[in-house]
């Protein structure tokens, strides 16, 4: 479910002024999950160009602290990300990969990505997979660059909470 909100005032706060190049901001919510054995989820967020299929990774959170890169063993559980991008990457990736996060709302730095992103139709994907838990994949279609300030949202039901994508021309 995607809501387009008239959010000119909102984006004015979050995003830089309209005199600059197009802007893109993303926030990802990891919900509190009440289970006996909780592990922080693996999360990937990426942009995919509908025409070229080109993938731009925004963030990949996985277990970095294990000996011998053991944490890479479960990267494949983010199945769509693994297929679209992960399997062709050399992990870790500077500016993209990071440690897993506890429940909360996270802003993902997209400033570098926005600068170089080719124009076209895109989908934002956010995928989460949790050890002894489930998997969830959410997407938000959008056009780049945006013609107007927009706030696009979608709500996860299990492994992800609210995903908010803000665009400004």
């Amino acid at each position: 479910m995607i809501k387009i909100l008239a959010a000119i005032s909102l984006s004015g706060v979050v995003l830089a002024s309209a005199t600059q190049a197009s802007e893109l901001a993303l926030s990802v919510e990891l919900p509190q999950i009440d289970v006996a054995e909780y592990h922080r989820p693996y999360v990937a967020a990426w942009l995919q160009n509908d025409d070229s299929g080109d993938v731009t990774n925004l963030a990949v959170w996985y277990q970095l602290d294990k000996a011998d890169d053991k944490g890479e063993q479960w990267l494949k559980d983010m199945r769509q990300w693994w297929r679209r991008s992960g399997r062709s990457l050399d992990m870790p990736v500077d500016g993209v990969t990071g440690a897993t996060q506890q429940p909360g709302v996270y802003s993902i730095d997209t400033s570098k990505v926005a600068k170089d992103l080719a124009s076209g139709n895109y989908k934002l994907y956010v995928e989460a997979a949790r050890e002894v838990g489930g998997r969830e994949l959410l997407k938000i279609p959008f056009q780049w660059p945006a013609h107007s300030a927009q706030t696009l949202e979608t709500q996860g039901h299990s492994e992800l909470g609210k995903i908010v994508l803000q665009l400004a021309p």
């Binding site: 011998d68 890169d69 053991k70 944490g71 890479e72 063993q73 479960w74 990267l75 494949k76 199945r79 693994w82 992960g86 399997r87």
Partner: peptide, 8 residues
């Protein structure tokens, strides 16, 4: 059939 990580 689909594996990640080194030495799977």
């Amino acid at each position: 059939t689909v594996l990640s990580g080194e030495n799977a």
